[in-house]
Design a protein around this nucleic acid. Structure first.
Lengths: 160, 160
DNA sequence: AGGCGATTGTCATATACCCTTACAATCCCG
DNA sequence: CGGGATTGTAAGGGTATATGACAATCGCCT
């Protein structure tokens, strides 16, 4: 038998554990695979940071973008998030239903809405931001301090 | 108006483009966000490498793992992929339906199947592997050569 | 001024992917 | 040998997204 004994499986693995006794072969030298594993781990950190609050990375991103870019349209929001217009609309619906954002008519374009954070949205974001940043930094603490900025640069180049 | 003019949107953006005129605020300093963007870009490279073939990252991973760890069980495969048993079963069904892998009874455990690549699976994987590795390396070529190994190390530490 | 292509938001529909729960068969260990 | 754990399986569900069509509106070109 080539597989080791396995103990009870927890409720949700969430992060992709490395399984002892398994040979990962070339996967360990592939950037796509390494990125996926790290991204899942980061997502887990995010989830811990926002447990309880009904938030997700795209929702958090939308809040931040709306705060810094008030009046943005749904189409542009979709571009920023990398999703289709219809998805940006659903996301906006969600934000609006919680009173976090609102649509305002645009004087210059009768088709598009301008999106704005509400006062409540600002408050919620401010509280959320603290927690998210804390957990993101805690996550990055797995790396030596001087490597962190370098990693951000490298990732940015890969994404471009 | 705070948004720049936008030109026609292509069929599928796939990678998350940076939108000109948008202030990304703190997102640019967050590892979770940077990882997500890089991972999506890597996924796009993978898609290019396998366009035509009906393959996905988990499917490719399964093929590699099966080749190097013949006789593995579905549960362990699920652990490696970070998914539930039922998902590993569906994936195995798919591989089997294409004649890429097969289940064999295990003499030592009447519950579990042993998973094996078929001869066809070996051939398909070998062809696929070339393309996937090529595109992964081409993707990594966005970084200076000496930074690549370092990036893999850093990602590994983040995922652990 | 008028008209036409392009863009925006919306909606309905579809898809891909994965989970949860429950179950029978089988194993392991005291 | 008996109870608890593990494996594969099946059914059902949920979530996030895309696609395609539509009306309203815009922008540009003649």
């Amino acid at each position: 038998m080539s597989q080791p004994k396995r103990t009870a499986r927890g409720p949700r693995p969430s992060s992709i554990a490395r399984v002892p006794g398994i040979d990962y072969a070339e996967l360990d030298t592939m950037f796509g695979y390494a990125l996926k594993r790290a991204q899942v781990a980061a997502f887990e950190a995010f989830s811990r940071a926002t447990s309880g609050a009904d938030i997700t990375p795209p929702r958090f991103t939308a809040l931040v973008i709306l705060q810094t870019n008030p009046g943005i349209s749904q189409s542009v929001l979709g571009d920023v998030l990398g999703t289709a217009r219809s998805g940006a609309m659903l996301l906006t619906d969600w934000l609006e239903s919680r009173g976090l954002a609102e649509r305002r008519h645009r004087p210059d374009d009768g088709r598009a809405w301008g999106l704005y954070l509400t006062a409540r949205g600002e408050r919620v974001l401010e509280k959320m931001r603290r927690s998210v940043r804390l957990h993101d930094q805690r996550f990055a603490a797995r790396l030596p301090k001087r490597e962190r900025a370098r990693l951000l640069r490298l990732l940015e180049r890969l994404a471009a």
